[in-house]
């Protein structure tokens, strides 16, 4: 007999994350369960906005939902830990470390996911965000001072302020206009977002090998739904999850390199900051994470504990 699970996310049709991770996972689950499990897939916010998918999964409108940590920062503030500018420059390193703490039984699961009644099935931490500018030449850390940068989310705003730049909030579809008319001097973007928004013709310089923050993708199932599944189905979901997470982050890193090359080919110069600036940046970004953690501590959430757990997992992930 067949079991059909409803799964939904907010990625546009054809986006690399569902193409490389989610769909692969669904196929593997169907395979591993001997065809017992099938999926009804609802992409592109068909069942609700990105910020609502956690709630829709908790209430059973869908069985499995995409949860972007920064969309639900009110409910899952600690999950943004991997969006901090920490010591990783690839998706796979960040993803492995985050999975270590977010998987059922991990520190983050116990602190946040389990209390919210959900269980993490899939994770991806995007390749770190870089500064990309339209005209201002990037040479060293000081050359980023006073630039108006399109930034999203709390920690990235603090990071932007730390390097002396000005964070500006602009919706993604309006970014291109803002860049072309000089309202902003640049963006804090992952490479994979540059091409879809078609901003590479407007860009001239970009940073590389540094981390100004990232973005956390998870797919969760409600605990209630999970417990109603047969053990062999649960096992299929877990095994397919491990495989899909690895495949997903590798695809993200490959695409990052490929997109970076395309962007470079369109005339963007990628700059490595001088070594002493990198060290200084590391210190500044460390302060961002400390501030994030102590703000949460002050509100009675274990910010420092989770940050330390993530840092420990990063050490191990190499």
């Amino acid at each position: 007999q067949e079991l059909t699970l409803r799964i939904g996310d907010s990625f546009p049709v054809g986006h690399y994350i569902p193409e490389n991770m989610t769909k692969f996972w669904m196929e593997r689950v169907t395979e591993l369960s001997g065809g017992e499990v099938a999926f009804d897939y609802y992409p592109a916010e068909q069942l609700g906005k990105a910020k609502d998918l956690l709630s829709l999964t908790q209430t059973g409108v869908m069985d499995i939902g995409y949860v972007g940590a920064s969309y639900v920062s009110d409910k899952l503030p600690l999950s943004s830990v991997a969006e901090l500018p920490e010591n990783f420059t690839t998706s796979c390193k960040g993803t492995k470390a985050f999975w270590e703490i977010a998987k059922p039984g991990g520190a983050l699961d116990q602190a946040e996911f389990a209390p919210n009644g959900v269980r993490v099935l899939l994770v991806m931490v995007l390749p770190p965000y870089q500064v990309l500018t339209s005209n201002s030449e990037i040479t060293d850390l000081d050359s980023l001072r006073n630039l108006k940068l399109r930034t999203t989310g709390g920690a990235k705003e603090i990071a932007t302020t730390k390097i002396g730049a000005v964070p500006v909030q602009i919706s993604a579809p309006e970014t291109r206009d803002a860049l072309s008319r000089g309202t902003i001097d640049g963006v804090l973007f992952p490479h994979s977002s540059v091409l879809p928004y078609d901003i590479h013709p407007l860009l001239k310089y970009g940073t590389q090998d540094v981390n100004f923050g990232s973005f956390v993708v998870t797919y969760v199932i409600s605990q209630e739904r999970w417990e109603a599944l047969d053990e062999d189905v649960q096992a299929a979901l877990v095994q397919a999850g491990d495989e899909a997470i690895t495949k997903g982050c590798e695809a993200a890193d490959n695409l990052d390199l490929k997109d970076k090359q395309t962007i470079a080919d369109s005339g963007v110069t990628f700059v490595s900051l001088p070594d002493e600036d990198k060290a200084r940046l590391g210190e500044l970004m460390g302060e961002v994470s400390q501030q994030w953690a102590s703000d949460l501590d002050a509100r009675g959430r274990p910010g420092t504990d989770i940050l330390n757990a993530f840092r420990a997992a990063l050490e191990k992930a190499d």
């Binding site: 009110d74 989310g153 709390g154 705003e157 964070p167 509100r299």
Partner: peptide, 17 residues
Amino acid sequence: SAYLNDDRIAAVIPWPT
């Protein structure tokens, strides 16, 4: 639930939800 948990968005001003 938001009031009891003191839920706030992650931004420079952490507005309560």
